[in-house]
C-alpha cells in the first residue's frame, strides 16, 4: 500500500500535483481510462462488463495546509491557512514550500521576549511567519512565489503496535485504499475518483459527480478519532482499532440507510469490526455528490485518525486493513444487490 509515499507527498487544496502524479502511476496499469478534468480531479474508469450500477468510489487527494500570502522586507514570509487548521498547532513546526519543497520553519517571538500577558494567549496566524533563512524580500522571492502552497513537513513512520504516524492521513489513507480497490476486477462500471479541494468546500467532488452521473457513491475518508484522555467515551467520535467507521449523518449529508444496512450486514457476516461515527458535524465529498443532478445515494466509510488537520496524525493499520476488506466485500456484493437493493426506491 502506498500510504507512506502518499502521506509524505505535498498536496494542499488547489496544489495536488505531486499526489496526483503518484496516484496516476499507481493506478494506470489497472484501469481502462484515466483522465483529469478542469479542476484537477483524477478520474479512473474501469468499464466492467455490465452497464449498471455506475459506482463512484471517491477519496479526496488534498490536505489542509498553508499558502504564501506576502513577504516582509526582512525576508520573512506571511501566510494564510488553506482549510480548517487550529492556529495553535502551527508555531514551531517545519514546513515545505512550493513544488521545489523549500524548507522553512514557522517562527514567533521567543517566549523570553514576550510579556507575561502575551504568554498566556494562543498565537494567531497573523503573529506567525515562515522563515526560510532569506535575508531580504528579494532573496525570499527567488525561492518562493506568492501563492505557493505550504505543507507540513512530517515523516511517515510505523510506531507502537501496528500504528502509524504521519501527516495528511485525512485523506491519503482514503487515496491508498481507493488505489487498492482499483486493482481488482468488477463487473459493473466503476469510477475511481481522486478529488481535489475537499478541504475548501468539496469543490472537486461537485464537478466530478456532475460529469459521472453515478447511480450510487461511496466516499472513503479519514475521520476524527478523539479517543484520548480527558474525553468521555461519548465524545470519542471514533476509536482507533475498532474498525472502519460508518456515517449516518454529517453536516453535508444524510447517508443512504439501505447502503449502510448492507455494509453492516456484510461486516457482521465476515466478522469485520465496524463502528459508527458518533458525531454529526463536518463536511465530506458525499454532501456534494448526493445532491448532484437528480440526486445520488451516497455513503461514507472512514478510517479513524487521531489529530487530523494537524501536522502529525496517528492511525491504526489494522483499521486500514479492515476498511479495505469492507470496501472490497461491498464491491463484490454490489452486482448481486443490483438495481433493486442498493439504490432503488422503496
Amino acid at each position: 500500500m502506498l500510504l507512506k509515499e502518499l502521506s509524505e507527498a505535498s498536496g494542499v487544496s488547489g496544489g495536488e500535483s505531486e499526489v496526483r502524479r503518484l496516484i496516476k502511476e499507481a493506478v494506470e496499469p489497472y484501469v481502462d481510462e484515466l483522465k483529469t478534468d478542469m479542476l484537477g480531479n483524477l478520474i479512473a474508469f474501469k468499464s466492467g462488463s455490465k452497464k449498471a450500477p455506475r459506482l463512484m468510489l471517491s477519496a479526496h487527494m488534498d490536505e489542509v495546509g498553508l499558502i504564501v500570502a506576502g513577504f516582509e522586507e526582512s525576508g520573512l514570509i506571511r501566510f494564510s491557512k488553506v482549510g480548517g487548521i487550529d492556529d495553535r498547532v502551527l508555531v514551531s513546526k517545519t514546513v515545505l514550500i512550493g513544488e521545489k519543497k523549500i524548507p522553512g520553519v514557522i517562527g514567533a517571538k521567543a517566549i523570553h521576549l514576550q510579556k507575561p500577558e502575551e504568554r498566556k494567549k494562543s498565537l494567531k496566524v497573523e503573529e506567525l511567519y515562515i522563515d526560510i533563512g532569506a535575508k531580504s524580500k528579494e532573496e525570499a522571492k527567488k525561492e518562493v512565489k506568492l501563492g505557493d502552497y505550504v505543507s507540513y513537513n512530517t515523516r511517515y513512520q510505523e510506531i507502537g503496535v501496528n500504528y502509524a504516524k504521519g501527516k495528511a492521513f485525512d485523506n491519503r489513507v482514503g487515496c491508498a485504499l481507493l488505489i487498492e480497490a482499483l486493482k481488482k476486477e468488477y463487473t459493473f462500471p466503476l469510477y475511481g475518483v481522486f478529488t481535489v479541494q475537499e478541504e475548501v468546500g468539496m469543490r472537486g467532488a461537485a464537478v466530478a459527480a456532475y460529469r459521472i452521473r453515478p447511480d450510487l457513491a461511496l466516499v472513503i475518508e479519514g475521520t476524527t478519532a478523539a479517543d484520548v484522555i480527558e474525553l468521555k467515551e461519548e465524545s470519542y467520535v471514533t476509536t482507533l482499532g475498532k474498525g472502519p467507521a460508518l456515517t449516518f449523518m454529517d453536516t453535508s449529508v444524510i447517508c443512504d440507510k439501505k447502503i449502510i444496512e448492507t455494509l453492516v450486514e456484510l461486516a457482521e457476516k465476515e466478522n469485520i469490526p465496524i463502528q459508527f461515527r458518533r458525531f454529526t458535524g463536518a463536511n465530506t465529498d458525499a454532501g456534494k455528490i448526493s445532491l448532484s443532478r437528480e440526486g445520488v445515494r451516497s455513503v461514507v466509510i472512514s478510517v479513524p485518525c487521531r489529530y487530523i488537520h494537524n501536522p502529525v496524525n496517528i492511525l491504526s493499520l489494522e483499521d486500514v486493513k479492515n476498511t479495505l476488506k469492507l470496501i472490497e466485500l461491498f464491491l463484490d456484493k454490489l452486482p448481486e444487490g443490483g438495481k433493486k437493493q442498493a439504490y432503488a426506491n422503496d
Partner: peptide, 8 residues
C-alpha cells in the same frame, strides 16, 4: 499586482 485567496 498579485493577491492570494486561500479558499473559494
Amino acid at each position: 499586482q498579485e493577491d492570494i485567496t486561500p479558499g473559494p
